[in-house]
Design a protein around this nucleic acid. Sequence first.
DNA 1: TATACATTTTCAAAAATTAGATTATGTTTG
DNA 2: CAAACATAATCTAATTTTTGAAAATGTATA
Lengths: 119, 119
Amino acid sequence: MNAQTPPSRLPVFHDDLSPEDTEKMMSNAEKAASFLKALGHEGRLMILCHLASGEKSVTELERLLSVRHAAVSQQLTRLRYEGLVKPRRDGKAIYYSLTDDRPRQIMEVVYDLFCRDED
Amino acid sequence: MNAQTPPSRLPVFHDDLSPEDTEKMMSNAEKAASFLKALGHEGRLMILCHLASGEKSVTELERLLSVRHAAVSQQLTRLRYEGLVKPRRDGKAIYYSLTDDRPRQIMEVVYDLFCRDED
DNA sequence: TATACATTTTCAAAAATTAGATTATGTTTG
DNA sequence: CAAACATAATCTAATTTTTGAAAATGTATA
């Protein structure tokens, strides 16, 4: 099954990184960690899962997740800040959807690791 | 309706999930979030990056990251708890390595998203 | 049109929880 | 004992939830 695991597209870091490389690496790690923190939250993960199958209003999410609307709204704000979701107003309701497939890419891996094998 | 067709190995959740499915989903989300939280930390991400190119002792990591050993040790404890790294004792030193390619799978995606395009 | 009111969502601030760094102390090995 | 790591206790900072509004939109009715 792992025919498509080539010796990794990851770079190899040698032990003597230049100060510039170290800084670059730390800067990237910061951005990546921020992104992963946004995903590392039960509620936000659930939101993303639901949005993966189509846009939802805040009220719909509130009902789907059994979470108070203010909390949902705040979690959406975080995801919006991270550029993972975008709002679209239609009358009274605001519908959220995934902005691109970045969260999807991660979630597919996460799904394989934590959901697939347990079904 | 749906703007883009998801290529997606992700399942589609319909709005009327059974209570069992909801619980299952939340349980999975909890595990996945815990995993993502472990990765959502600059220091731990850097540790994993370094371990991706081979096992390292705590002292080596301490030097590579310019972080006190107690902090490195704590971060390693978290990663160990999450099953992402494993220790191997050799004399006085303890060498850590990735347990499997789960972190690698995530990191490859993260690397593509945050590091690749900026080099 | 104007007024009143309900609904949906956001905002802001306080309270509660959690996470991380530091310091200090143990443990294992040579 | 010294070196290499781990663990515990403490302190601080960051996150999350809760609460109580406020803003925007739509509906009903006179």
